[in-house]
């Protein structure tokens, strides 16, 4: 266990370095800079601003300064929000995105696992067809279609929720459902195939033979093994939830990190873009590590890999 964690953390270093270097080069290769506005600044002023941020230095000096700051955990100042450091913006906006993501994940798991399990138990019946058809609908209706439709039905027509904002507890419902539904559908499919697989095993037959109720067989004996593929999927799902939250935050006007990132990319706010990408990269690497640890805890066989 300790070895795995140490090895993964060591592997993370070159990964993050590649990410940092690649984003740095891509952004600098791009035509235009952060201070090329539609209304051009006077050249002297632009020069002064660029000198202030060190943008007039040779590229390799900028690069090493950037890496040096990263090692100190400093993402540098934002160019588009003067007076703000990138980490301050992240610190302010990320908790909102995180909360949204966690609600989405909760919905994905609490809807997906029961649906998939039920479909597997009712294998080859119309219940299974219905449930899996529902999951297919979830996969084919992306969040930017479901979001506005939910908005139209539940807040504009029925007036149950506020159409936008993030102030009240009830504001979490529609965005979380919008975000979680797609992953609920994927998880339902994985849980179903995992459960179908497990139910064929001999130990399940033994459990049934000794007279256990079907409910106990499924919940106590089969579910844990059946959920391995679901747990393995959580890593990619987390990465997906992050980008999904960009869309959901745009639809519901939620003050998360997503809109900041998209705007920063459009406006060439280099530091903001690089800071956010690295921040999310670290987050995903950590999350994948946690998922691996959970997998080992659930599945003794994986411990010897």
């Amino acid at each position: 266990m300790f070895n795995l964690i140490a090895r993964r953390l060591l592997q993370a270093i070159p990964t993050l370095w590649v990410v940092a270097t690649a984003t740095f080069l891509l952004l600098r290769l791009a035509p235009g800079g952060p201070f090329d506005d539609e209304k051009p600044l006077a050249p002297e002023i632009k020069e002064q601003i660029e000198a202030h941020y060190g943008l007039n230095l040779p590229l390799h000096e900028q690069y090493f300064a950037f890496l040096g700051n990263l090692l100190k955990g400093d993402f540098g100042p934002s160019y588009k929000y003067p007076g703000w450091d990138v980490q301050e913006i992240i610190a302010q906006a990320f908790p909102v995105s995180l909360e949204l993501g966690l609600w989405g994940l909760l919905i994905a798991l609490s809807v997906g696992i029961p649906i998939g399990t039920l479909a597997a138990i009712k294998h080859n019946t119309s219940t299974e067809t219905g449930l899996m058809g529902f999951a297919m609908v979830g996969i084919c209706l992306p969040s930017f279609v479901i979001g506005p439709i939910l908005l139209l039905i539940f807040s504009l027509t029925l007036n149950w929720f506020n159409p936008l904002g993030w102030s009240y507890a009830s504001d979490r419902v529609l965005p979380a459902v919008t975000l979680g539904l797609l992953y609920a559908a994927y998880i339902a499919r994985l849980a179903r195939s995992g459960m179908l697989d497990v139910l064929r095993h001999d130990y399940i037959r033994t459990a049934r033979a000794k007279g256990l109720a079907e409910r106990a067989v499924v919940i106590r004996h089969a579910l844990r093994t059946a959920l391995y593929p679901v747990v393995a999927y959580l890593g990619p799902a987390a990465a997906g939830l992050i980008s999904g939250s960009f869309v959901v935050e745009t639809i519901f006007f939620i003050p998360g990190l997503g809109p900041f990132f998209v705007n920063a990319a459009l406006n060439r706010d280099y530091q903001m873009v690089m800071g956010t990408v690295l921040f999310y990269a670290v987050l995903i690497i950590l999350f994948n590590l946690i998922v691996d640890i959970i997998q080992m805890w659930m599945n003794p066989r994986a411990r010897h890999d």
């Binding site: 592997q11 990410v19 891509l26 890593g235 990465a239 980008s243 873009v273 990408v277 999310y280």
Partner: peptide
Amino acid sequence: MRFVDAVYALPFTMIVIILTVTFN
């Protein structure tokens, strides 16, 4: 394959967004 794993661990959409805005 280690390289593929490393890239796999990254936020896909963010990379695509950077690539699309990189070229005006």
